[in-house]
């Protein structure tokens, strides 16, 4: 089954440590190209760290990461980061309006975001265009997450890394974002990797899944394995999470 997938991102014995603390341990595996992969695991498992490696905000202590078959350090960091878009867990904003934040990826390239494009992006994430002139300070946690996703989409990345972007959203908004992600994946063939604490989301939205615990990938494969995991630690994790 695995052979039918092509890798968008491939990890070979990747380790990452901060000083003497080992955070990621011997990660080997891949995220299939053009698919939605969901990434689950308990807090502190190293999921965010893995994303930071893919966006090259940090480099592995050892091992190799390949992005569509090329070693990650073969790419120019700027081009890589534009193509491997990251929506941060913290939904960090720069000071100013929603529009300023939305336009940021283009501002960095020295161009502008048109009003129409901005409005369309806002509609995509389920915010009215009236928000464009709002100061980001005045947004709710969920609204920030929506702006953060929209902003990541501005670069039209080929690979999209979403770090718990629906954690502060109500059920309806969550569904909106889920639909948006599926739509982007279908329309542009964007590879999407989604970190979520919501196991139902992980199974229904993800075609492929990874379970990480304690800096290791414990199980991965077509997401249906989450309904019926083989590994004991994965079973435990899933049981605990469903309670």
């Amino acid at each position: 089954m695995k052979e039918s997938y092509k890798a968008a991102i491939q990890f070979e014995h990747v380790n990452y440590s901060d000083g003497s603390t080992s955070i990621l341990k011997n990660i080997t595996g891949f995220f299939p190209k053009g698919k939605i992969t969901t990434l689950v695991g308990p807090s502190g498992a190293g999921k965010t760290t893995l994303f930071r490696l893919c966006n090259r905000l940090i480099s592995p202590s050892s091992g190799e990461i390949q992005i569509v078959g090329e070693k990650i350090d073969q790419y120019n960091p700027i081009e890589l980061r534009q193509n491997v878009g990251l929506a941060l867990q913290s939904a960090t904003m720069i000071r100013g309006t929603v529009m300023k934040n939305l336009a940021l990826p283009l501002t960095l390239k020295g161009s502008k975001l048109s009003e129409e494009d901005a409005t369309e992006l806002m509609q995509d994430v389920g915010l009215s265009e009236a928000f464009l002139t709002r100061n980001v300070k005045d947004l709710s946690g969920g609204q920030r997450q929506k702006v953060s996703i929209a902003r990541t989409l501005v670069n039209k990345p080929k690979i999209l890394l979403l770090d718990e972007i629906t954690s502060s959203l109500d059920r309806v908004s969550q569904q909106d974002i889920e639909e948006l992600i599926v739509r982007i994946n279908e329309k542009y063939g964007t590879t999407i990797i989604w970190i979520t604490h919501n196991l139902t989301q992980a199974v229904t939205i993800g075609e492929y899944s990874w379970v990480m615990i304690d800096g290791e990938v414990i199980e991965s494969g077509e997401s249906s394995f989450l309904n019926n995991p083989k590994n004991d630690r994965v079973k435990q994790f899933i049981k605990g999470d469903l309670v």
Partner: peptide
């Protein structure tokens, strides 16, 4: 640090990231 890394993550240069 978060804002600096946000700008880097979106494809900004170090100079752009640290400008503010």
């Amino acid at each position: 640090q978060n804002e600096i890394e946000l700008i880097l993550s979106l494809g900004g240069t170090p100079k752009q990231a640290i400008h503010s």
